[in-house]
Design a protein around this nucleic acid. Structure first.
Lengths: 114, 114
DNA sequence: GCACGATACATAGCTACACACAGTATGTCA
DNA sequence: TGACATACTGTGTGTAGCTATGTATCGTGC
């Protein structure tokens, strides 16, 4: 093993989850959610995401038109709430379908590798 | 939609498959396979991968100790055959487990987003 | 023998994005 | 008032997929 084994495995696992974060985040934005709470929610469901990742991701998806956001100051500090846009709904559904196809494909590949 | 919609969806779909390519490739290397044939094999099973991606990926995984390779000149042009190493076997199994957990997590997230 | 196409591999440059790290701001409580 | 929690923002680094391009060998037809 030329490279540090724990690091390699760790990096590969990170890479494995990488493209899924976006889908995970989108999945929870049917209704208004703000970043901090969204992060806690995802963490509780087994999908931890760094804040340095989540906030740029949210900003990016809004720029791409997938999300709407608005500031609210009710109780506690100011919060930025996000929610899927109409286009975001369509894209989310498309991605969900793509994901399921991907899962099936990989499942087939791994089955035959025994 | 501020950005070009087909491009956004396309990019997101690409991102979705990103970290999975490595797992797909690893899954097919229980026995010797060379790049070109591996690419065709994966394509036939629904997991297309660009050669500009596959070859650096194979090289990378060998450098990380996950694969062994050897040149063979039998019939046709010279080919570089790859196969999982012992460490590669271990890491592959770990990644497969990780993947299944990830799938279950995302499934749960998407279920609740209806 | 040569040209062409198929097979087979390699890599530089670019883009996109997660993560690490650091900083800012507001509200709450002792 | 200061400390801490909540909440958000932004920069730099590293990694990996894709595009584009190039090299090399083999096989076949002329």
């Amino acid at each position: 093993m030329q490279k540090n084994s724990p690091d390699v495995a760790f990096r590969l696992e990170q890479e494995l989850r990488r493209g899924v974060l976006m889908l995970a985040v989108l999945s929870q934005l049917r209704k208004d959610q703000y970043g901090y709470s969204l992060r806690q929610l995802l963490d509780a469901k087994g999908m931890a995401i760094e804040e340095g990742t989540l906030y740029p991701l949210l900003r990016r998806m809004e720029e791409q038109g997938l999300l709407h956001s608005e500031w609210k100051i009710e109780d506690g500090p100011p919060r930025r709430y996000y929610r899927r846009s109409r286009d975001g709904e369509k894209i989310y559904r498309g991605l969900a379908t793509q994901w399921r196809g991907l899962v099936a494909t990989v499942e087939g590949l791994m089955e035959e590798s025994k």
